[in-house]
């Protein structure tokens, strides 16, 4: 399972980075999203993938014994997903507004506009 997930993570990172290197702004955002998912899956996988018992201490014991599933990676991913979702939504609105103020399809076109130092 880990092996399969490792390949999936690799593919997500690679395709995310590939899309980001394209000129189009829309591809850039999709690339960012894929990269984010890759990072989430990485945390998930690295927190040991197993189907052991939930980490609940039995009533007659004071601590956990034996193998148990670690809940922390899930908590981390959940936080990261929420943050990533919010930021990605903001980015999409930002792109729409930027496009309205200064129509452009690629980042390079924006560069030409704002890089011109002779403009006031």
């Amino acid at each position: 399972m880990e092996f399969l997930l490792a390949i999936v993570i690799g593919v997500l990172y690679a395709s995310g980075l590939y899309l980001m290197m394209q000129q189009s702004i829309v591809k850039l955002v999709i690339g960012l999203g894929l990269l984010g998912h890759g990072a989430h899956l990485l945390i998930f996988t690295i927190g040991r993938v197993n189907r052991d018992v939930a980490p609940i201490i039995p009533a007659d014991s004071k601590y956990l014994t034996g193998a148990f599933a670690d809940p922390l990676p899930q908590a981390l991913i959940l936080t990261a997903i929420v943050i990533g979702f919010g930021v990605l939504a903001f980015t999409l609105v930002l792109i729409r507004e930027t496009n309205r103020a200064a129509p452009a399809i690629t980042i390079a076109q924006h560069e030409q506009d704002s890089g011109d130092v002779s403009r006031t």
Binding site: V87, L94, T98, A101, H110
Partner: peptide, 15 residues
């Protein structure tokens, strides 16, 4: 316009 263009670069690199 130029503010938004600057922001876009800033947002992407920070993400």
């Amino acid at each position: 316009a130029d503010q938004l263009q600057g922001t876009l670069k800033y947002v992407v690199i920070n993400l």
